[in-house]
Design a protein around this nucleic acid. Structure first.
Lengths: 204, 204, 204, 204
DNA sequence: TATGAATGAGGATTCATTCAT
DNA sequence: TATGAATGAATCCTCATTCAT
């Protein structure tokens, strides 16, 4: 039952994702995580100090691999639009690849106590930083208007992605997240408003 | 100690907001809500069936008054842009008016178990519907591109607002939410991208 | 099952005496005390904050009633010897009246952690004080040598009584403690040494 | 880290004395003893069957060396008074030489369960026997009144010494135990009472 | 309606002990 | 002999919920 690889530590994290996704963190008993990981209850405490630490480690591991994966590819793209498209694709595809993982990220990780919140913020803020850097890059290439506030734009981008994923996770339906990438990119780039009419003004 | 008005029911909800905002839902004891509301522990169960119901009622009450307030004013505006501006203003100002309330909405309400999630979705979806109707309205006035997917646009609008509020609630800093209304509107309307260069100017 | 009188508080203490005497404090489960007291597990925590507090309260209650009973009678005696005899009788009879109680006092109460030790010392020291006052009184009546150190004499008196009770508690045999009162008094008063021989010196 | 000498067995006992003196037996984890002894947790179980056995062995070793040391010297004294003085000195000096050791003897060793109590009694009773033999010897030399009950006198002597040491161990103050030897001897020999007044002096 | 003492199921955590190496 | 990772039984305490008053 226990996973190989880096051993019981990963086995416990893997089990935690599944169990927490199903029941929610607070309804999850440590003993159930242990059972699913194929270890004894006490073994969990050789790798984590408290139940809460499982959640925090879970998020840290996920965010780190998420951000690492994102960073490594991002340099392959040279325009802002390509970079943003990549972020959107990466975000949606990574999260839709594993619904359990997404569920933990979107729902469970927000509930926690203030302490947890802070510990979770650190890895998240690296992602924020990357987005803001891309926006800044867009300004240097002239693709992004200079009046745009980097931080606000980042909140809009991240907030949109996050909401899209949240609704997907909460929805029973099984639509594909990736199909939303292109329309999302278009709106983030151009907004929702129709371009000013080429105006038949001149015709009158 | 007990609030007047609609009596103990509201007193309990008021107390719940404060206590949950401070400690988080799961760390909040029913007895603490009761104490803060000035009623006996058992009295809480004359108005609510389970602890969970307090949270659900809390959200329903908040969303209903939120949506009612939004609806009643929205008709005063005749263009899509005005309507969207109003939604943004209303959302940010209503939530920044009471940090405790905002905290409960943004953080605590997401934690709950699947059941709770569903009960919470109903009032929220009314808000979603209003936003989508406004978008649809924008299409009829020609302000919104018809290719824009209503549901996706709604997710972007709501997701952006939600993220802006979430960062505000989590942030220690005390900046004003309202100041973000205008720049947010601009980006949602026009996106982040710079307009195509009139460019061939020099060619003429 | 629950005792009447001052209600559950006393019922729990009574149950605790019996259970702790049988199994020892550390082997005693709170749930067993609760069961014997005829209350629910949680009820114990309405009257005591921690398991440890049961032990402390137990000792405080016992020492207080012990000291109160001792004080009230002690004034009836006017010589040091009578007072000391009364202390000895009272100590031995009170403790032999309830073997469970004695067992808790003699054995279990000494084990505790430093914190407990300190909380237990306060009531005990009242008893020490009474003994020392009686010794001092003996000096004023000329019954006690003035070179005798009050504190040391108190330790000898208390230590002797304590050891006598400890051996009785630990012994399986069922001899009477009271029968030791008189010989104990004699030795404490006169020591073990034979008086100097009236010495047939004069006869030679 | 591991002590030399008889090897790990003694290292573990030494470590146990220190750790138990600091935290108390029940709060002491076997792993802490192992760490302090410089051995692995499992190694402890090559030398002791159960945690409890460490305590019992500890006491047995201490009592055996205590009794051996006492016996060997006791024959050097020929009067009861000298022998008793030696016992008192030896008891107080031996225990004050190592506060950790004393702490374990006085406090921790009393806590244990009935089973432990019995196993501990055997080595202790050798000490009791020696004291009683000395008392009996005092009767043969005429130094001790024959009415004195040997067992009771032993309890008084041991109880006094024990109480003196207990108060010293529990006290924060750092007074010398040895200084109590002489006054203790005087009271045990002669009691606390003043000699009968030669009184009829004035009549002559 | 209102109370709040009482309930008791539930679960995180500890730590003595084992055993494969 | 020695190790120390792994075990899992054991239990204190919390707190949502009930119900006699």
């Amino acid at each position: 039952m226990a996973k190989k690889g880096q051993g019981k530590y990963l086995a416990i994290l893997d089990a935690a994702i599944k169990v927490i996704a199903r029941h929610g963190y607070h309804r999850t008993r440590v003993s159930e995580i242990a059972r699913k990981a194929g270890v004894a209850d006490g073994t969990v405490y050789l790798y984590f100090n408290k139940k809460e630490d499982i959640l925090i480690s879970l998020f840290r591991e996920m965010m780190e691999s998420f951000v690492d994966g994102l960073k490594s590819e991002l340099n392959n793209y040279s325009t802002f639009e390509e970079k943003l498209r990549y972020i959107i694709n990466y975000h949606l595809e990574t999260l839709s690849a594993n619904r359990d993982r997404a569920m933990v990220t979107q729902i469970e990780l927000r509930q926690c106590d203030a302490d947890v919140g802070k510990k979770i913020f650190a890895p998240l803020s690296k992602y924020f930083q990357i987005i803001e850097e891309v926006i800044q890059y867009g300004k240097t290439t002239g693709e992004v208007r200079t009046e745009v506030d980097n931080r606000l734009a980042r909140k809009i981008i991240f907030g949109s992605l996050d909401e899209v994923v949240t609704r997907w996770v909460m929805s029973q339906k099984d639509y594909s997240l990736s199909q939303l990438s292109d329309p999302l990119l278009v709106i983030l780039m151009n907004g929702v408003s129709a371009p000013p009419q080429p105006s038949n003004r001149g015709l009158n």
